[in-house]
């Protein structure tokens, strides 16, 4: 199978009509040290009201994938070099910058990992919310904008929203700031929300509250959510489907229960086994030796082969195609059928 062919979606028949369909997306970063293939042929589709989790190690390209969906890849190093991002039947990659600005916020929104980065320290929260609203409704008067802002804050359960609007970011806790960012992202009820590590900067108790809030927003508005994380706990808590990303590609995708119960890719298994567990005392953790390959200089075969305990000759020589396990569950591994689980 040639690497340049589209990888094909796993979920060819999604449960609901897809709002977002990504086909063979490739985002490369042109640096002086070489071309970083941060996203290298990723395909998936997402139905409305659905939550897709994307997990992977640091540097696997999760954030670049998220940024590509909203066309905010770093300039000028980052370029989307191939593929399609079909949002409501339109290819987002074909839009002009102006059209894209319209689409961002109205049809697709994003929440970043660090609220510090998304809020401007010199403007009050109210000003920043108003700004986000004005982008889409240029001729709203101040009173309406104020009402909308208050509504937006109410929707993310911020207590005393009127007073909060006057606050500056530094006067608020991390959890509160992340809620404000959420309010800004959801102000126009987009159909797709991309959340890139939305809770990594938050405390355990606040994290749980925030994930609860996202679910709540989803139930009310039917927004489709993409949750990007390195934490299987977040996946277990929030997602319907999971995609495991490794070195720029998805290596396994399927319904969340199946991924946890019957992971088929050795990498997914290794990740699942390397976590210590709150609810049972483990004697020894499985660790993955070695490091992921450089995205500049990728091997021709399976990218995980060098660290994989089950690798055979073929894994080094040929990139594995998708093997379907069930209708909705697939893994890109030559030996997905043979690898024992739970591992001995």
């Amino acid at each position: 199978m040639s690497l340049d062919q589209p990888m094909g979606t796993v979920n060819d028949v999604p449960r609901t009509a897809p709002v977002l369909e990504v086909q063979d997306l490739r985002t490369y970063l042109y640096t002086r040290w070489g071309t970083t293939k941060a996203v290298d042929g990723v395909s998936f589709s997402l139905g409305s009201g659905e939550t897709l989790g994307i997990v992977g190690e640091s540097g696997s390209g999760k954030s670049m994938l998220a940024l590509s969906l909203v066309r905010l890849t770093p300039e000028p190093a980052g370029k989307i070099v191939g593929g399609r991002v079909m949002l409501n039947g339109r290819n987002v990659l074909d839009l002009t910058d102006r059209q894209m600005r319209e689409v961002r916020g109205k049809e697709i929104s994003m929440i970043l990992q660090d609220p510090q980065q998304s809020l401007n320290p010199v403007f009050s929260v109210g000003d920043q919310l108003a700004e986000a609203i004005r982008v889409h409704d240029r001729d709203l008067d101040d009173k309406l904008i104020h009402e909308r802002s208050v509504d937006a804050l109410k929707s993310v359960h911020v207590p005393a929203p009127e007073r909060r609007l006057k606050n500056f970011p530094h006067q608020m806790s991390g959890g509160m700031k992340q809620r404000i960012v959420g309010a800004m992202a959801m102000a126009y009820q987009p159909q797709v929300l991309v959340a890139d590590e939305p809770t990594t900067a938050l405390d355990v108790t606040i994290q749980a509250q925030y994930l609860r809030l996202l679910k709540d927003l989803q139930e009310r508005t039917g927004v489709a959510i993409i949750v990007i994380t390195h934490d299987f706990g977040v996946i277990a808590e929030t997602c319907d489907r999971v995609a495991v990303m490794y070195a720029g590609r998805f290596v396994e995708e399927g319904p969340v229960e199946q991924i946890f119960d019957h992971p088929r890719h050795p990498y997914t298994r290794a990740l699942l086994e390397s976590r210590p567990k709150v609810d049972l005392k483990s004697t020894r953790l499985q660790s993955i030796d070695g490091q992921p390959p450089s995205l500049i200089d990728l091997p021709i075969g399976c990218r995980f082969a060098a660290r994989c305990a089950y690798a055979i000759e073929r894994c080094l020589a040929e990139y594995p195609p998708w093997f379907e396990i069930t209708e909705a569950h697939a893994a890109a591994c030559w030996r997905s059928e043979e690898v024992p689980w739970p591992s001995p």
Binding site: R32, W33, T73, E75, P76, L112, D114, Q116, Q117, T200
Partner: peptide, 24 residues
């Protein structure tokens, strides 16, 4: 990466994108 408060690298300006190399 599981680092808390990690700055978003993509907000980097041209310089950084071009000059910096990233480790694994």
């Amino acid at each position: 990466m599981s680092v808390r408060n990690q700055p978003a690298r993509f907000e980097s300006d041209t310089d950084e994108a071009l000059e910096l190399n990233f480790d694994i």
